[in-house]
């Protein structure tokens, strides 16, 4: 049945996420907590690191702008909004997944 196979695929996708739980910062959902994993290796502006966005720092999404980007996070102690060109680059690892639990 087509319906069934779709469900199956969806499920395996979630399994994959839960095992590795590494994702792009842009895919982070509200109420999810994650840790930045590879900020240093990417060609990102130094300013980002100076503002406290370094590996191992906790990050959660607060808001999305009405027209898609920028995205608004709390990273460490700092609230900051980041543009598309940056959130596409940063990888994060989920530590808590409230959003997934709710669904």
């Amino acid at each position: 049945m087509p319906n069934n196979s779709l469900n199956l695929r969806k499920k395996s996708y979630f399994c994959y996420l839960e095992t590795f739980s590494i994702m792009k910062l842009k895919d982070l959902k509200k109420n999810q907590k994650a840790v930045i994993v590879n900020c240093q290796e990417k060609q990102l502006p130094l300013k980002l690191m100076e503002m406290g966005c370094v590996d191992g720092v906790e990050v959660s999404l607060l808001n999305k702008a009405p027209f898609g980007t920028p995205l608004y996070f709390i990273i460490g102690d700092t609230r900051m909004a980041l543009g598309k060109e940056i959130v596409n680059e940063i990888d994060v690892e989920l530590v808590e997944n409230d959003a997934a639990k709710k669904t």
Binding site: P45, K47, M51, T78, R79, M80, A81, L82
Partner: peptide
């Protein structure tokens, strides 16, 4: 280069 990094003050 234009990077959008903006601190949101309290």
């Amino acid at each position: 280069k234009r990077y959008f990094i903006l601190e949101m003050p309290e």
